[in-house]
Write a protein that binds this DNA or RNA. Sequence first.
DNA 1: GCCAACGTTGGC
DNA 2: GCCAACGTTGGC
Length: 154
Amino acid sequence: MNYWLVKSEPLTYSIEQFKDDKTTLWDGVRNYQARNFLQAMTLGDLAFFYHSNTKVPGIVGLGKVSQTQVIDPTQFNPQSPYFDPKSSPDSPRWFTVELVYVKTFAQVISLAQLKEQFKGEDFALVKKGNRLSVMPVPEKIAQKILTQKIFSGV
DNA sequence: GCCAACGTTGGC
DNA sequence: GCCAACGTTGGC
């Protein structure tokens, strides 16, 4: 099983909304590198839910991949901000996954904290200039994040 | 195929 | 609101 991190601006889609929805289609990703990661996801993979562009950016919770290789429907919808006129149903360009809500952490694991803890490690989030909205998280790092939340989240 | 211009992301 | 980093576009 693999671990991932997905970013969302809470004003656009928050962990609270995710909790209410129970499942969500991770649509609107229009970056090839991010799409490739979405396509690499397998059933049961865990995804850290990250709030970006907010007062305290950081990991706020956890989701699980519940459906893979989903064709992002927004690419065909001219009304959608994610409409892509160059994509066609015959050869769709953008794929995504469905996520099911797992939990919200007791407190935000802030970007500042993550940078400090995983400085220099193989974790795209803490590297300079990274703007990817979907990225892999090495298992060792994922385990550390999960473990510290199990202890502090009680 | 190069690269300048432009747009977007996202931390601060 | 600023701006660095980076992706994309389009002229040539």
